[in-house]
């Protein structure tokens, strides 16, 4: 063993490119990031390796970003998260590529700029072409919301699928949707709302409102813990059957009830309807 521990170090970068690429493809998410910081050469090698297997989710709900990189289709809360602690370690690196003098003196603003730079770095490294999830809090300041939307608008050229998780909806979401230039046809929206925001939910469900923007949702609108009642649903569906929302040909609604009170594991009981409107 002494002989092995005293053996020369492994000269990774002297491997033929195909072999090197294979070794790097076996790195886990965090190690790929660390490897990219080792040197500029390692950074460019990482970028040219096949890292497409990860899905990215970024949360901007707190002051500092949390990035989740998981193998495609294997998202778990416990999977690889690059959290605030890691971001703080990397802040010095961010200072290398951001002119700190041009940043605002405001701490929140500075944090946001650094967060977006950090997110850009990760997007660039992993050659991501879609965002599996953006977590936002619509309680954020309007300035923060505007900055994030502008950043997202820059990414739209290669972002194919958006899924937004928005918590505690209020005017922030309105501002967000108004400024976002993403094609609504590629947009999925997941809302986590509180009960006293019922009027807002009704407006979200007003499909004509989105048609007024020249866009329409064709993906999903998924709401958790809403107070959207049977009466609301009946009213929407009656309106649709009577000819409202003429561009919608089919409607599928699934009711899921989870009982969290008896078990930490939920067993959804689902029931659903599917309607297809025929032209008169």
């Amino acid at each position: 063993m002494d002989e092995i521990s005293n053996s020369p170090l492994f000269p990774l970068l002297k491997l033929p490119y195909v072999v090197l690429k294979n070794v790097i493809s076996k790195f886990k998410q965090r190690e790929i990031l660390e490897f990219s910081f080792v040197s500029k050469n390692c950074n460019s090698i990482s970028k040219s390796s096949n890292l497409f297997r990860f899905e990215i989710r970024i949360s901007f709900t707190k002051d500092l970003p949390v990035v989740s990189l998981t193998p495609s289709g294997k998202f778990r809360v416990s999977n690889c998260h690059i959290g605030e602690d890691y971001f703080e370690k990397r802040e010095i690196y961010m200072k290398e590529i951001v002119d700190m003098n041009k940043l605002s003196d405001d701490v929140d603003e500075k944090n946001l700029q650094l967060s977006l730079t950090w997110a850009d770095y990760i997007f660039d490294l992993y050659h991501l072409n879609k965002i599996a999830g953006i977590y936002l809090s619509s309680n954020s300041s309007p300035n923060k919301t505007k900055t994030i939307v502008e950043w997202l608008n820059r990414l739209i050229s290669y972002s194919m699928n958006f899924l937004f998780y928005v918590s505690e909806t209020n005017d922030g979401l309105e501002l967000f949707l108004n400024r976002l230039k993403v094609n609504m046809r590629t947009l999925s929206l997941q809302l986590t709302v509180v009960k006293d925001l019922k009027p807002f939910i009704r407006r979200i469900l007003d499909l004509d409102r989105f048609e007024a923007y020249g866009k329409s949702f064709t993906q999903y609108r998924y709401m958790r813990y809403t107070s959207f009642t049977e009466m609301d649903f009946n009213r929407s569906i009656k309106g649709w059957l009577n000819g409202n929302h003429s561009r919608i040909e089919s409607l599928c609604a699934i009711y899921i009830k989870s009982d969290y009170s008896t078990s930490p594991v939920s067993f959804p009981k689902s029931d659903g309807i599917f309607c297809h409107r025929t032209s008169k």
Binding site: P8, L9, F10, P11, L12, L13, F37, V38, N41
Partner: peptide, 8 residues
């Protein structure tokens, strides 16, 4: 570990 010289 990998004996890499930095250029950062």
């Amino acid at each position: 570990v990998l004996n890499i010289k930095t250029d950062v």
